[in-house]
Design a protein around this nucleic acid. Structure first.
Lengths: 136, 136
DNA sequence: GATAAAGTTAGGTGGTATCTAAATTTAAAC
DNA sequence: GTTTAAATTTAGATACCACCTAACTTTATC
């Protein structure tokens, strides 16, 4: 459904905008993603076309319910993986965060198994909350 | 360096050809990869262009030293991940194999950490040998 | 040698991610 | 209120990737 790039953008936006409550504009998004503003805008349009964001030109984006669900799920995946890398493998939090990003292709059911095996941890290495596990 | 598809082809070829010693032709490769022979041939050419295979038209492929190293590494990654999913998370071997394939984007250093944390297991769930860990 | 199977090549399609250049809108300064 | 700077958007181009079909070539078999 989502390409890898789209997922990366959506996760970033979710973290900033829905969890931290900080608005993020196209230029700032582009800077974080390491691309030009035009590129970021195009990805926003694509995410909107897939029904995950509402995109009003010049006014910014807001999450649709589906987008919120998807973003929450991506963030949960990321944090469970971080927890694994840090708590079990002994990575430092920074490494854990970086490496977790390269594992986001893990399926939801795998992450659920992982969550169970780790005893349903409630926070990631930096103390941010890990959401609810589907299998609980 | 390698695209995801190229890595998938190389891993398959390595397993069949270098580990099991069974030659695999273009048509058979294509069938396994779920594509047409022309597509498989194109990927072989790309792997050759990247210096991992020697490709002699109509005569088949053989691994270069670099290709062998790369293939061995991919196979080790796969088996360590399988071991994790099966031995720690309780997946059945079939699921472990499938899910491991979706995690091959993991970095070598991460897989090394994982290997260490798992006590340097010597075989994957189906009993095949896991190669040497760089950090040992 | 004829033929079937395997393999190859050329050329085309569709999708993704990126860019530049040019327009537009917004917001802030005067 | 106008001007101006910054943010944003759009259009159009490029490059790469993975796949395909169609047509050709080689190899091996009878």
């Amino acid at each position: 459904m989502l390409t890898e790039t789209e997922a990366r953008y959506l996760l970033f936006l979710y973290r900033r905008q829905e969890e931290e409550g900080r608005e993020v504009g196209t230029v700032a998004l582009a800077r974080e993603m390491g691309v030009r503003p035009a590129t970021a805008a195009q990805t926003l349009r694509k995410l909107a076309a897939k029904g995950l964001l509402r995109y009003r030109p010049y006014r910014g984006v807001e999450f649709t319910p589906r987008g919120r669900r998807e973003g929450r799920e991506l963030l949960r995946k990321h944090r469970i993986l971080e927890f694994l890398l840090w708590g079990v493998l002994g990575c430092d939090p920074r490494t854990a965060c970086r490496e977790a990003s390269s594992l986001l292709s893990a399926s939801t059911s795998l992450v659920d198994s992982l969550c169970r095996a780790l005893g349903h941890p409630s926070t990631c290495p930096c103390g941010k909350p890990i959401g609810r596990c589907g299998g609980r």
